[in-house]
Computed example of a mutant assay.
Amino acid sequence: MFLKSKIGLFKKSLFLCLFLIMGSFAVGQNFDLAGFGYTGMVPCPYFIEFQKGNKIEISWYNANQKRVKKLYTYKKKYIGRFPLFELDADIPEGLYAGLNPESKNYYGNKFMLLTGLVKKAWKENEDDIIGLGMLPAHKGKKAEGFFTRFPSGGSGETPYFYYENVSSHLVEKSKEGKREYKIENLCDMREDTPWVEGVDGWGIGESFVIKTWNNNDDKYILLMNGYISASNPKLYDENGRIKKIMVEGVISGKKKEFTVKDTPHPQTVDIGFLPEQEDVKITILDVYKGTKYEDTAIHFMILWRTEVIPYE
């Protein structure tokens, strides 16, 4: 579990050769995944293409280096806020060719997935999708992340972001030892790695600075709200999520208040009001209160160059 009461890696890149499928929340999706796809080369080449009618085609190279294709149909359920997709057949063993034998612990047909539509994404003239896929706990094992399509920097080329002047972070003590939810977690897409404020109450007034990079043109903040865990999805609602934030340019002093959506899917905040690229200070003004813990968490937050629409 988690947090100031009592509670208690992304292990290998082996699950990158799996796939991302995504549907909509009950309120209806605001973009269609059909026609979008995901590709990857490590640890095994694969291509995923979404199709109409809740269908998805997956192709990969098996142990004999022969390309194999399979068409799946899926249906969607929910675990808390997280869509859970159930395929009409298990993932075939051939997809795991040459991977760590532990991957067999996760054979199955169910996946939790979060995604967003990136406007004018990679080629600057067409939309694309980004996302985080998670395997729910299976056969007594800890849940795992298996798919991430997020560059670690706003341009997709920088290795990581820097943060400074954070006002607090949560340090959690348990029988297993000490765990810190540090500000550096904000550029770590693995599940169960949020930044969590460390003061009494909901963290109103807590702040930090996101450092910019030279020659970037980032006009957005890309974030995933709350505590995201495939092992324990209810932690999203049990803990606080940011609702209103103040964004302030460290050099210009210009500031603006924003309302953040209460969704675990990736979303952006438009900071084009700043006159130039500069370090950005984030201050929590209000939160969506958790049902169990007085802790506010942010899973991911970096500077970004284009709009992302959450899939819900």
Results as ranks from 00 to 15, higher is better:
residue 281 K to D: 08
residue 274 L to C: 01
residue 290 G to D: 08
residue 280 V to A: 08
residue 310 P to F: 05
residue 272 G to D: 11
residue 282 I to H: 12
residue 304 W to V: 02
residue 283 T to L: 15
residue 299 H to P: 01
residue 289 K to E: 11
residue 293 Y to W: 01
residue 289 K to G: 04
residue 311 Y to K: 15
residue 280 V to C: 08
residue 305 R to S: 09
residue 281 K to A: 11
residue 282 I to K: 14
residue 280 V to S: 07
residue 297 A to K: 00
residue 276 E to S: 09
residue 302 I to A: 02
residue 306 T to V: 01
residue 295 D to Q: 12
residue 300 F to E: 04
residue 307 E to P: 02
residue 310 P to E: 07
residue 303 L to C: 08
residue 281 K to E: 12
residue 281 K to Y: 08
residue 276 E to T: 02
residue 272 G to V: 05
residue 304 W to A: 06
residue 306 T to D: 08
residue 276 E to I: 05
residue 284 I to P: 06
residue 276 E to F: 13
residue 276 E to G: 06
residue 292 K to G: 00
residue 297 A to T: 02
residue 286 D to W: 13
residue 301 M to W: 03
residue 306 T to I: 02
residue 293 Y to V: 01
residue 301 M to H: 07
residue 277 Q to H: 12
residue 293 Y to Q: 08
residue 280 V to G: 09
residue 297 A to R: 00
residue 283 T to Q: 15
residue 280 V to L: 05
residue 307 E to H: 11
residue 293 Y to P: 00
residue 286 D to L: 13
residue 296 T to H: 09
residue 284 I to A: 11
residue 279 D to G: 05
residue 291 T to P: 07
residue 299 H to G: 03
residue 281 K to V: 02
residue 306 T to A: 10
residue 282 I to M: 14
residue 299 H to Q: 06
residue 277 Q to D: 13
residue 297 A to S: 04
residue 298 I to H: 02
residue 307 E to L: 10
residue 277 Q to L: 10
residue 276 E to K: 14
residue 286 D to S: 14
residue 300 F to C: 01
residue 305 R to L: 03
residue 285 L to R: 03
residue 301 M to P: 02
residue 275 P to T: 05
residue 288 Y to M: 13
residue 289 K to I: 01
residue 295 D to E: 10
residue 306 T to W: 09
residue 300 F to R: 05
residue 285 L to V: 01
residue 294 E to R: 04
residue 303 L to M: 14
residue 301 M to C: 03
residue 282 I to N: 11
residue 287 V to T: 06
residue 283 T to W: 14
residue 291 T to I: 03
residue 310 P to M: 05
